[in-house]
């Protein structure tokens, strides 16, 4: 009930939340160059509670591109999309799926 600000409980050593406590939480969106000016976007680390197949279906329709799901031994299921869809994918993840933006890392140039 203290009105004095300084008496409020504050732990200076508490976790600030910006440390990489759970690095597996990150969603990595990468780009790879294929032959010519063709590119490929990969989305790695989408949480398992989401149905990747349904997401892929929506993405393919929204971005008007083809795509597929690749199973990786270490990294789990990865969505692959044709073309540079990095910004659009990140918008989709933050907008439709309500994922925190700080968990999404866009790689590439």
């Amino acid at each position: 009930m203290s009105t004095i600000q300084n008496l409020n409980a504050f732990d200076p050593f508490a976790d600030t939340g910006d440390s990489e406590a759970q690095p597996t939480n990150y969603i990595h969106i990468r780009i790879q160059q294929r032959n010519g000016r063709k590119t490929l976007t990969t989305v790695q680390g989408v949480p398992a509670e989401y149905d990747l197949k349904k997401i892929l279906k929506v993405l393919k329709k929204d971005f008007a591109c083809n795509g597929n799901i690749v199973k990786d031994d270490d990294l789990g299921e990865v969505i692959q999309l044709q073309g540079d869809q990095r910004v659009k994918v990140s918008e989709f993840l933050t907008g439709q799926l309500q994922l925190p933006k700080k968990n999404i890392k866009i790689h590439g140039f």
């Binding site: 780009i31 160059q33 000016r37 990969t42 590439g108 140039f109």
Partner: peptide, 29 residues
């Protein structure tokens, strides 16, 4: 890792990257 590519270093210690990259893109990386 960032550009999702591979490459090598040539005799003059320059980096040869697979793929086409503009200086601007390199700068952002």
């Amino acid at each position: 890792a960032e550009l999702g590519t591979t490459g090598s270093i040539d005799g003059e210690k320059r980096l040869v990257l697979k793929g086409k990259f503009q200086p601007k893109q390199m700068e952002s990386v």
